[in-house]
Computed example of a mutant assay.
Amino acid sequence: MVGDVERSPDTKERLIEGTRQLLWDRGYVGTSPTAILRRSGVGQGSMYHHFRGKPDLVLAAERRSAELMQAQIREVFSGEGTGLQRIVAYLLLERDVLRGCSVGRLAGDPEIVADDALREPVRETFGVLRRCLAEAIAEAQAAGELDPGLRPEHTAAALAAVVQGGYALARAEQSTEPFDRAIRGALDLLGVGARDADRAGGPSS
């Protein structure tokens, strides 16, 4: 029943994950309480038992997406290989390109960016990405893999923008080709040949 209250931890997780998926696909406005209840399969009473309201639940869902993306970033940049190899591995991660980035899509949502609390997980996540990229770039420069004239912070911001912009181009065309071209262009600018990139990171998708 709609008014039933389910207090189990699993119910809370279903609410968070259902909201996370809706935010990814529909944005804040499209993530209505009715849609959340339908996606998570719980009653209205359960939603308001675990969360104060939609903004509270949305923030929990955003934090979950942010945690997952940050964990993936840290896993790539703490892995084996040289600084340049780790950068290539990040650029060539397997991705659901046409769906876009679960965190990056929130940055284009007016309701999210207008609210400091809701914007914070997005800001924090891209801060982690830029720092990891900048550290890897500096390491690659020290090893003679990249041009010593590059400014790590600026180059890191450019690479992050290539990935996020690639998602937008791909969604506009409803094709992964624009994303792949953007990534290959970034690799060209880094001086990484296609064969070396494939060995380092595998195909992007």
Rank of each mutant, 00 (worst) to 15 (best):
D180I: 12
A168I: 11
S204Y: 07
D180K: 14
L146H: 06
L133W: 12
R151T: 10
I73Y: 15
P148I: 04
G83K: 07
G79P: 13
L37D: 06
G166F: 08
M47R: 05
Y28M: 12
R151W: 13
P148V: 02
F51T: 02
E153A: 13
G45Y: 05
Q44E: 11
A35F: 09
Y167C: 05
G104S: 09
G185H: 06
L93M: 15
D115N: 14
Q70R: 12
A138K: 09
K12A: 13
P110I: 10
H50Y: 08
E94C: 06
Y90W: 15
A114C: 03
M1V: 14
P148T: 05
P9M: 08
T19W: 10
D10M: 00
R184C: 01
F77V: 06
R119T: 07
F51M: 02
L37Q: 14
K54N: 13
R119N: 05
P121G: 05
A170D: 00
L37N: 09
D96Q: 15
L189V: 04
V103D: 09
A197H: 03
L22C: 04
E94M: 01
A134M: 04
P55G: 13
G185C: 02
V163C: 07
V163L: 08
V29I: 09
D196N: 05
G166M: 08
S40M: 04
E111G: 06
F77W: 08
L106C: 09
G27Q: 02
A66P: 05
A142P: 07
A66K: 04
L98T: 01
L150D: 06
D96S: 12
A134Q: 02
G81Q: 07
A161P: 04
E139R: 12
E124C: 11
M1Y: 12
E67F: 05
G149S: 03
E173F: 08
R20H: 00
V163H: 04
G165S: 07
R20W: 01
R195T: 01
S65K: 09
T176F: 00
F51I: 03
A200R: 03
A143R: 08
V128F: 08
L92P: 06
V162Y: 10
D109G: 03
V29L: 15
R63A: 04
S40P: 02
L190F: 05
A71Q: 12
A114W: 01
V162F: 12
Q174D: 15
R26Y: 06
R38V: 12
E67C: 05
G81K: 11
A197M: 01
E177R: 15
A170P: 02
L118F: 13
K54Q: 15
R181Y: 01
A61C: 05
A71T: 12
A140R: 07
Q21M: 00
G193W: 01
T125C: 07
V42R: 11
I183A: 05
L118R: 14
E173Y: 10
